[in-house]
Write a protein that binds this DNA or RNA. Structure first.
Length: 582
DNA sequence: GGGGTCTGTCATGAA
DNA sequence: CTTTCATGACAGACC
């Protein structure tokens, strides 16, 4: 059924995630980087190094936002940089005496594309995404994929995907060991205009950018330091720069801020959420999901709509939910002439119009006995309660037994027929009711009253007839009610499958978007490092990444500006979104 | 014998 | 007020 396709979709997602994860491993993002305890430890060290303290919320403190800050979330892509990363950088920078002190440099490690980490964090949404992934894993027959996620250390595939380890090929590629830009020439094609504009920008506003022909770049900065160039200090609460302006995003409209926030949050949530305990809990949830325990997405509206759809789709069994009562009841009243004595009677009495409706209930086990007569093999399937009498049996019950039968067999048949008769039929026979229970139950009120008026009936008889009618109608109502309930369940299950398919597809798309985003970001990082590393001042010396930063102007030009200036601008730009979100 | 399912019935509320 | 219908709850029959 659809279940299989769902399974395949789910496994495709897992494959995709897994592939991405492996790619990131190839890129050098080791899982140990995300070790939680280690991270915390490193953060403590960071606390001592940083003076601002505004980013030093504890993990337990302020939930997602605190998490985001502590994880040094990339505001652009949501990539979270574990603290160990910072520590490593700090240790490297210590080896470079010419550089400024760790706080600034640490922060300078982060991409100029980094924005403030504050984000409109829809944690619940992220959790739902997580649950989706879990769900897909739970449905995955091959457990290997789920093991990867469940057992993975805090650095889960996704978060690992979007993390940048210090030794990623990107950084290596852009290291200034390379004499030319060939290594990333294709990258420059993205921003060739900016590169060409560099000299113009420098001459017009700020320090002149001296084209680099030096080969001592690496000796001065080291590739790691160059990487450090790449990251503005706005995440840093320290001296020089807490709020340098985030450099204009070269990716421009491609990277919508909201989108980036969401991505970053997703990463965090995933990183947070993928621990074995929660995974198993989620698994249990899904295991116990019978299709009725629906999540919030299956709201009453969904239910009603599904019922409405059931009416239209599932053999037109019921009409639109709210208006179903009247029409359905009509159908039901006629569809379930379960106490009907004979089909002939119905037809003779003008109940013919009801027949087409029988097909509606073919799926149900409590079908109209008259319908069962069309499917004789069903008569003895399942429960054979004495309440309902098969039409054929009813026929022979009302008619005298065939004379060809021996008396003993007659008695046997009579016993059998007695057993087949409903209790009300027994009562009616005992009370000598002069018409069939089918008439009693199914005749319209007027005709029913007419029928009663034709006979002289005792009070007891009338009472019994009214009870028979009431019970008969209620019996049909109960049958209809149960059928509706079953249809509703089936339709809800179908809806759940559809929604799960949609969700899996959306998750797939999301992962693909994240991947392309990551690639773009890496290109930008490469370009930044390449450009900055080649800049030389009047004396032919490279610029210190802790003192200068590149800034992309709106017109496509690139400016080299002092860090302090850049930080101020970042601070200004950071304030705006915060205000907007309040 | 106990549990699950199916079915009929009753009580109740709504239309 | 009566009738009809929907539905939850319960019980009996059956497997």
């Amino acid at each position: 059924m659809g279940w299989e396709s769902h399974l395949t979709a789910a496994s495709a997602d897992i494959d995709l995630i897994d592939i991405l994860w492996r790619q990131d491993i190839d890129l050098g993002a080791g899982r140990e980087v995300f070790d939680y305890s280690h991270r915390q430890k490193e953060q403590d060290v960071d606390k001592e190094l940083q003076d601002g303290g505004e980013q030093e919320d504890t993990w337990a403190g302020e939930g997602a936002e605190a998490l985001a800050r502590d994880l040094l979330v990339d505001g652009e892509t949501g990539e979270s940089f574990p603290a160990q990363f910072r520590a490593n950088v700090a240790s490297i920078t210590e080896a470079v005496p010419s550089e400024n002190e760790s706080p600034a440099l640490e922060n300078s490690l982060f991409s100029p594309l980094l924005t403030g980490t504050e984000s409109p964090f829809d944690l619940e949404q992220q959790w739902q995404d997580l649950m989706s992934i879990m769900e897909m894993q739970a449905m995955e027959v091959n457990t290997s994929a789920s093991e990867i996620l469940y057992n993975a250390p805090p650095g889960d595939p996704l978060s690992t995907n979007y993390s940048l380890a210090p030794n990623t090929p990107i950084n290596q590629n852009v290291s200034l060991h390379q004499a030319s830009l060939g290594g990333c020439s294709q990258d420059f094609s993205l921003f060739s205009s900016e590169v060409e504009n560099l000299p113009v920008a420098s001459s017009s506003t700020l320090l002149p950018l001296v084209p680099s022909n030096s080969t001592s770049l690496n000796s001065t900065f080291g590739s790691t330091n160059l990487a450090g160039l790449f990251f503005p200090p706005q995440l840093n609460g320290t001296a020089n720069d807490t709020a340098g302006p985030e450099l204009p995003d070269p990716l421009g409209g491609l990277l919508d801020e909201a989108m980036l926030d969401e991505i970053s949050l997703m990463d965090l949530a995933i990183e947070e959420g993928f621990n074995p305990v929660q995974a198993s809990q989620l698994e249990e949830e899904f295991d116990s999901d019978s299709g009725l325990s629906l999540d919030s997405s299956h709201s009453p509206s969904s239910l009603s709509s599904s019922e409405g759809s059931s009416s239209s789709s599932s053999s037109s069994s019921s009409s639109a939910s709210s208006s179903a009562s009247s029409s359905f009841s009509e159908e039901g009243a006629v569809g379930y002439s379960s106490d009907s004595e004979t089909l002939d009677l119905e037809e003779a009495e003008g109940a013919v119009g009801y027949q087409p409706e029988y097909s509606k209930f073919c799926r149900m086990s409590y079908q109209d006995p008259s319908q069962l007569s069309c499917l004789p093999y069903l008569e003895h399937v399942g429960h054979n309660h004495t309440y309902n009498m098969a039409p054929s049996a009813l026929d022979s019950a009302d008619l005298p037994p065939p004379s060809t039968l021996k008396k003993s067999s007659k008695e046997k048949q009579a016993d059998f027929l007695d057993k087949q008769m409903s209790r009300d039929e027994h009562r009616a026979r005992a009370m000598k009711i002069p018409f069939t229970n089918d008439k009693i139950i199914n005749l319209p009120v007027e005709e029913f009253n007419e029928l009663l008026s034709k006979y002289q009936l005792s009070e007891a008889q009338l009472s019994l007839i009214r009870d028979i009618r009431r019970r008969g109608k209620n019996k049909m109502a109960a049958q209809n009610c149960r059928k509706r309930k079953l249809d509703t369940i089936l339709n809800l299950e179908r809806d759940v499958e559809d929604l799960q398919r949609d969700k899996a597809r959306l998750l797939r798309e999301k992962v693909e978007f994240l991947r392309s985003l990551r690639q773009m970001k890496q290109k930008v990082q490469s370009l930044y490092q390449e450009v900055f590393g080649r800049l030389r001042d009047e004396n032919g010396r490279p610029y210190s990444p802790s003192q200068y930063a590149l800034q992309y102007a709106g017109d496509g030009s690139v400016l080299l500006i002092p860090r302090t200036m850049a930080d101020q601008q970042v601070r200004r730009q950071e304030r705006k979104p915060k205000d907007r979100r309040k």
